[in-house]
Design a protein around this nucleic acid. Structure first.
Lengths: 188, 188
DNA sequence: GTCTATAGGCTGATAGAC
DNA sequence: GTCTATCAGCCTATAGAC
């Protein structure tokens, strides 16, 4: 049984995905839920609160996932593979609100924006460290620029949610295998 | 010497990049240009027109670029490399308005939206064909899923504009070399 | 080509009846 | 917890003086 608030968050995430945060009005959300706009305010305090309650759980899931990976006993290259798995898992858990990760998080305000940015920076730093360890242990080519590879892998992982929607013909297990290959081993 | 319209498009693209199309008001644009909002309407007919005049040239540049590559005498794998070069080139030419390619194009309306979607679909189809040719000629691993590789490469290329802003320490030539390596040859 | 004034509508959010 | 009514402010866009 879903609470009203959960329904609101669910419908809002679908609309944000389709039209963006700024392009979605509180009235749009109310209509999707099936009530008048004013009624929403019995469950939420502002439109901004909805955005925060959608963004923050994802952000925390990634942070915790990265901590688990960093502290694991996997070798650095296996850690890269684990990061790919983490993104697939989180993307599956937060299907609609994942779109916020690619762009709409910029509409976060105040402390939430700061927290989100810090968390993201932290995540990227851990990722960077793992890439550097891979180089040190000769698990990846030392001539590869860490920043370029970090960005190219992360871009693909961030956009996974939008691709997944259009390609459900491929199983999660196969997707995971293919993505690890494409992103880490290349096409050859 | 820049015309008024060029100035408007330039300032609008910077704002769209920062706050998104829906999050940017005509007043914001006017203020950036240094006039009152009403004055803009001597040069443009609507906010939507600005979006279209920013999106369409990029779209056309990609379409033409892809035609040139497809019709060239390069082998299929060299064509993949040429696509990477094309994206770097277009990203450099349209620094600010490139952000529209990743998300804000959904706010295009009417015929412009249709044209944009069709052009994008076409581009992806050509890309797909090149990947298939690579497989046929044994230039890339036949076990690689075309859709997964297409999406992962394109995601990285689309986000290049946002990464480039923060990483100007690396030269365009080096970036091109590194990106081709990361996206096509992998990390090893 | 700029401005002021203004239209008409939508925005997020609140007050208070039921 | 829903509704109607309402608010003040902002939105895109137009009219018309200069």
């Amino acid at each position: 049984m879903k609470t009203s608030k959960e329904t609101i968050l669910k419908e809002a995430s679908k609309l944000f995905r389709k039209k963006g945060y700024a392009g979605t009005s509180v009235q749009d959300i109310a209509q999707a839920v099936g009530v008048k706009a004013a009624s929403l305010y019995n469950h939420i305090s502002s439109k901004q609160e909805i955005l925060q309650e959608l963004c923050m759980p994802i952000s925390r899931q990634f942070s915790q996932g990265m901590i688990d990976i960093s502290e694991s006993t996997l070798n650095p290259f296996e850690k890269l593979q684990a990061i790919v798995s983490l993104h697939i898992k989180v993307t599956q858990s937060f299907t609609d609100s994942m779109s916020l990760i690619t762009g709409d998080w910029i509409h976060l305000e105040g402390g939430a924006l700061k927290e989100y940015k810090a968390s993201r920076k932290n995540y990227e730093q851990s990722f960077r460290t793992i890439l550097e360890h891979c180089k040190k242990e000769n698990l990846i080519d030392k001539n590869i620029n860490t920043e370029v590879s970090l960005f190219s892998i992360l871009s693909s992982l961030h956009w996974l949610y939008s691709w997944r929607e259009r390609h459900q013909e491929i199983s999660s297990i196969e997707l995971e295998k293919q993505l690890k290959n494409c992103l880490l081993n290349g096409l050859k």
